[in-house]
Amino acid sequence: MNKQSIQIALAYMSVVIGGGFASGQEVLQFFTGYGLIGIVGTLVSGVLFAFLGMQIARMSSQMQANSHKEVLYRLFGSRIGLLVDVVLSFFLYGVGVVMLAGSGSIFTQEYNLPPLFGGVLMTVLVIATLCLNVKRIINLISAVMPFLLAMVLLITTYSIFSYNASVEALDAAARENNETVTGNWFVGALLYASFNIAVGFPMLAVIGGMTKQPRAAAVGGVLGGLGLGALILLLNIGLFANINQLQGIEMPALALSGRISPILSVVMSIALVCMIYSTAVGMFFAFSARFAKPDTRRFKLVSAATVCVGLVLSLGGFSKLVGTVYPLLGYVGFALILAIAFSWLRSRSAAKAQQAGLNAIS
């Protein structure tokens, strides 16, 4: 394991963590709402995160890809790849909008400020960051990850050991009082992994392409995927243990921190803003890069315009946007998963055929 592997793992996790489970609302709808069986769902998603992260990072490194479009074209061909790219870009923009809405919800729930305040603040931060060059953006996103991990681990660990109801009662409360994205926990787990892979794919492809060692890139993808799986599992258990006290709350993770300490709640709100910020930057970067080359004046103008439009769209509300955009993006992500799995099987078959040929010659 080297520095590049660790950087890839941290960047992979930081891009996904803001959109995937920082607020707790996502985990609530995809896992906790199914009750105890939702814990198994987190394990399914964790395995998929590791496998898919490894394949994307390695493929990008082998290609020395400059953008996710190159990887999409390799997976799907030029025509279908273009279609997938357009659809994916549209939904990634939707995730960026959700992040702006999430920022508004944080400042409303924690500080009783209008949602527009948090949205405008995040808009300014994202636009300012997108005016930096690509390497600085990646370094900035990677740098905030250790702080975010520490906060999530602290909150969830305390919550797991402070539950005050029987497991049976919590299971019943989770199933009866919470909306889920689909009627089946396994489909929910697949959707969760697929939409998060779609979210992390553009940035992971760019980072992998900047790495000249495919093996190091693959290790980074695996580490990031396993780290995400572990965090999702912990957060899901923490939410489940306190599900009877989290009804109707848009930011469950923030509510859990408030039960520990008012000061910790403030610190957690800052951490959540950082998580959402890291994902918002990744999403708007990927979308803007679809229309302009990064590090150019045109890119900065496109970024500013798209983020401002996103601010207006974010006024639709955080929970509603999560329940609408994420499942739809999950179905788009299924196409990515199938294409990556097919590419992996094809490469394994080619490697076996080559080895068999070498054995026959010798």
Results as ranks from 00 to 15, higher is better:
residue 210 M to S: 15
residue 268 M to K: 01
residue 326 Y to R: 03
residue 217 A to V: 04
residue 229 G to Y: 01
residue 277 Y to T: 08
residue 277 Y to N: 12
residue 248 G to K: 03
residue 254 L to G: 15
residue 245 Q to K: 02
residue 202 P to K: 04
residue 277 Y to D: 11
residue 222 V to F: 11
residue 203 M to A: 12
residue 249 I to P: 12
residue 256 L to S: 11
residue 275 M to F: 15
residue 269 S to P: 02
residue 239 L to H: 01
residue 317 G to K: 04
residue 276 I to W: 04
residue 248 G to D: 13
residue 271 A to M: 14
residue 292 A to R: 06
residue 239 L to T: 03
residue 306 T to Y: 02
residue 243 I to W: 05
residue 288 S to N: 03
residue 210 M to Q: 15
residue 270 I to W: 10
residue 302 V to T: 05
residue 235 L to W: 05
residue 318 F to M: 07
residue 297 R to M: 03
residue 208 G to M: 06
residue 292 A to W: 01
residue 267 V to E: 10
residue 292 A to C: 06
residue 225 G to I: 05
residue 274 C to H: 00
residue 288 S to P: 14
residue 277 Y to Q: 05
residue 225 G to C: 10
residue 271 A to V: 14
residue 324 T to D: 07
residue 315 L to S: 14
residue 296 T to N: 07
residue 231 L to V: 15
residue 224 G to H: 04
residue 302 V to P: 05
residue 320 K to W: 11
residue 319 S to C: 00
residue 207 I to D: 00
residue 280 A to W: 01
residue 215 R to V: 14
residue 295 D to T: 07
residue 238 G to W: 01
residue 302 V to S: 02
residue 249 I to F: 12
residue 202 P to L: 06
residue 306 T to M: 12
residue 233 L to V: 07
residue 244 N to A: 15
residue 206 V to E: 12
residue 291 F to S: 06
residue 205 A to I: 04
residue 300 K to W: 11
